[in-house]
């Protein structure tokens, strides 16, 4: 292994900051100093975490070996790191829903999928050939955070079970 620790990857770090001047800059400094390349910063000023702090989402790229050092130096600098990892919506999940999709309010189903299953819908195909009396099918293409397909599927199953819909799941990528 080279000393850069492999190919550069993209990571998302969620922080919470006290709403005081200089806090944000103080949090970003350790990232740059530890060799991380800042890609984007999303400062959710309107939101508050349960502790009354402001959530900040930082996207950065670095070599995998550097990433832990960056998170550590953030914590050493007194920054509260809520979540760290390569968590971007970069995995795809395709499922087919079968059942009385129209009668059970398809748009509500999709809204639930997006909010509860933490997935974003990128494509929808609906096939309802003989009106709403018959069962219809819908193909959903979802983007999920990497490594969370399993969780998203669990949620999807719950949502579908509530509405008596059947989920035709893909085999997981490990099995393809």
């Amino acid at each position: 292994m080279s000393d850069t620790g492999g190919e550069v990857q993209t990571y998302t770090v969620r922080l919470e900051l006290v709403d005081e001047p200089g806090e944000l800059l103080g949090a970003l400094q350790p990232i740059a100093e530890a060799g991380g390349n800042l890609l984007s910063i999303y400062h959710e000023r309107g939101n508050l975490t349960p502790r009354g702090h402001i959530p900040v989402e930082v996207d950065l790229s670095c070599a995998p070996a550097r990433f832990e050092t960056i998170v550590e130096s953030l914590r050493e600098a007194g920054v509260n790191v809520i979540q760290a990892g390569s968590e971007r919506y970069d995995e795809e999940l395709v499922v087919i829903l079968v059942g009385h999709l129209v009668d059970t309010d398809l748009s509500d189903t999709l809204r639930q999928v997006e909010s509860c299953a933490d997935a974003s819908l990128t494509d929808l195909s609906l096939s309802a050939p003989r009106g709403s009396d018959d069962t219809s099918s819908a193909r959903l293409r979802l983007k999920t955070r990497s490594g969370t397909n399993g969780k998203a599927l669990d949620k999807l199953r719950e949502i579908a079970a509530d509405k008596e819909l059947q989920v035709v799941e893909p085999l997981t990528e490990a099995s393809q």
Partner: peptide, 13 residues
């Protein structure tokens, strides 16, 4: 419970 439409949607993809 698998209707023909589900297989059609799968085939399109």
């Amino acid at each position: 419970d698998i209707p023909g439409t589900a297989l059609d949607l799968a085939a399109e993809d």
